[in-house]
């Protein structure tokens, strides 16, 4: 019972943080994520000369290629390295001058270019770090427009997670009991070979023995994602949705080994911030 009240107290404290406190948190998470990506060989200077030059059927690719940004940024190792450093530097500057919008806008634009070019050079169409853009977007505006921009980001986050659940429902991933256990084996096939005594291997064995548990996990993830439709109609469940994001990405990390998406939990702020109390401080 005491723990329950402590958690409630912590939640209340989080939800009374002001706009600039959230801005600090978001920028810090993005900065750490970019440092981590560069450490993990995901900087543009790591892949600038990759033989892939993938163009997806998406408006953002048209824009980047028409503007020739790919040729500019990925001209050489030095230009790609300069871009990576510039992105990290702009995030640091935005953190230092927290009340200034300029560096946030620069960071947001550079972040978008980074993701599109990384996708092109990985040959992979996945705006898998869209959460960073959504989380950063409201900070690009001043007092008048920050609140509607915040709601736009919040709606886009709801839309994305809802459709994640919707596609699972529509493509009937839930219709085969052993499906998740098979997905799990497929995802970690090579990992099991290299690390036969790992924790993941034990989970794999467990899910193979009890596929119904995997089915329940899959179903709960789908329902969790579908529940984001509530976010369009009310803010009453925002705390639940915020911690759904955390829960979902933690599971994604532990079960699917997709720790790289943990950064997207930064979108939680869109569901924890209470603008009616704090908007005057922007």
């Amino acid at each position: 019972m005491e723990n329950y009240f402590q958690v409630r107290q912590l939640l209340n404290k989080i939800s009374t943080l002001d706009f600039f406190s959230y801005k600090r948190i978001v920028l810090l998470v993005l900065l750490l994520a970019m440092i981590w990506f560069n450490y993990s060989g995901m900087g543009l200077h790591h892949v600038w000369n990759s033989p892939f030059d993938f163009k997806g059927a998406d408006f953002t690719y048209f824009l980047v290629y028409k503007l020739g940004l790919n040729r500019l940024v990925l001209h050489s190792y030095t230009s790609a390295m300069f871009f990576d450093v510039l992105l990290i530097f702009s995030l640091i500057m935005a953190l230092i001058w927290i009340k200034n919008k300029f560096f946030v806008i620069v960071s947001a634009v550079l972040m978008l270019i980074y993701h599109i070019l990384l996708n092109a050079k990985m040959g992979y169409h996945a705006h898998h770090l869209f959460g960073f853009h959504f989380a950063l977007f409201p900070f690009c505006f001043g007092a008048i427009n920050a609140l509607p921009a915040f709601y736009l980001s919040r709606y886009l986050a709801c839309l994305t997670y809802f459709f994640a659940g919707f596609f699972k429902l529509y493509h009937k991933g839930w219709s085969v009991i052993g499906s998740f256990s098979e997905i799990f084996q497929n995802q970690h096939a090579a990992y099991f070979y290299f690390h036969p005594n790992s924790f993941l291997k034990h989970i794999g064995h467990f899910l193979n023995t009890y596929p119904a548990i995997g089915f329940m996990l899959y179903l709960s993830a789908m329902l969790l994602q579908l529940s984001f439709i509530l976010g369009f109609f009310t803010r009453r469940f925002d705390k639940v949705l915020a911690f759904s994001i955390l829960g979902f990405h933690l599971m994604d990390w532990y079960l699917m080994n997709l720790g790289v998406f943990m950064g997207m939990t930064v979108m939680m702020w869109l569901f924890l911030f209470k603008p009616q109390r704090n908007i005057s401080t922007i």
């Binding site: 997806g56 408006f59 169409h125 705006h127 898998h128 459709f163 596609f167 699972k168 493509h171 991933g173």
Partner: peptide
């Protein structure tokens, strides 16, 4: 067209049947 990021989480949305082997 590819509706990003809506399409992103369509990952793992298809049912998967038991395989003879998993390819990577």
């Amino acid at each position: 067209m590819e509706i990003t990021p809506l399409g992103y989480f369509s990952l793992y949305s298809q049912p998967m049947l038991p395989q003879d082997a998993y390819v990577q």
